[in-house]
């Protein structure tokens, strides 16, 4: 199994991983949140650092730092009818680029990408850029996210309500 995985490399791996990131971004942008949630492993961590990319969650509250049940609550909120920040919902689009995959274990692939998220709601527009880190693993032949860390370049500032990153 693992040997097979690690033979994946070069253009084939690059293509596979890019397709995965595009699909993840599309699930978020098109509000298919349950399908998005299904991409995460049961032991997943979703992390948006506060203050700097190397912000220590033991020392400081993070913009997001949650396990799968936290993510489930996030999705529950996103789908709840009438909840303030989602009524009307914002629109956003992720643009994925500079994708660099690197094997970090037998079935563990670290993918670093640069992403830009354009946000629009009620006439207010914003752009968020940063470094996305996905720690991927394959389960039943499909990529799953074990850890997702989104380090915004302006995470030291007071930000308005953020889109799903």
């Amino acid at each position: 199994m693992t040997g097979v995985l690690r033979t994946l490399g070069g253009p084939a791996l690059q293509y596979d991983v890019e397709q995965f990131l595009y699909r993840e971004a599309w699930l978020v942008d098109s509000r298919q949140y349950d399908e998005w949630l299904a991409l995460f492993t049961v032991d997943a961590l979703y992390w948006v650092p506060n203050g700097s990319a190397d912000s220590d969650p033991k020392e400081r509250g993070q913009l997001a730092y949650e396990n799968l049940s936290g993510l489930e609550h996030r999705v529950y909120r996103l789908k709840l009818p009438g909840i303030g920040p989602q009524s009307p919902p914002p629109s956003y689009r992720h643009l994925v680029g500079n994708v660099i995959p690197a094997w970090t274990g037998d079935n563990e692939l670290l993918v670093i990408s640069s992403q830009v998220v354009s946000f629009a709601r009620q006439g207010r527009e914003a752009q968020y850029a940063g470094t996305w880190e996905h720690l991927l693993t394959q389960i039943d032949g499909r990529w799953r996210i074990r850890r997702k860390k989104v380090s915004l370049i302006n995470n030291d500032q007071a930000l308005w309500q953020l889109p799903v990153l």
Partner: peptide, 23 residues
């Protein structure tokens, strides 16, 4: 630590309480 994490979730612009109030 649990309070730190819960408080951050309340006050964060990517969180689940204060975003509602500020809206």
């Amino acid at each position: 630590q649990a309070n730190l994490e819960l408080t951050a979730g309340w006050g964060s612009p990517a969180g689940f309480v204060q975003v509602d109030d500020l809206e």
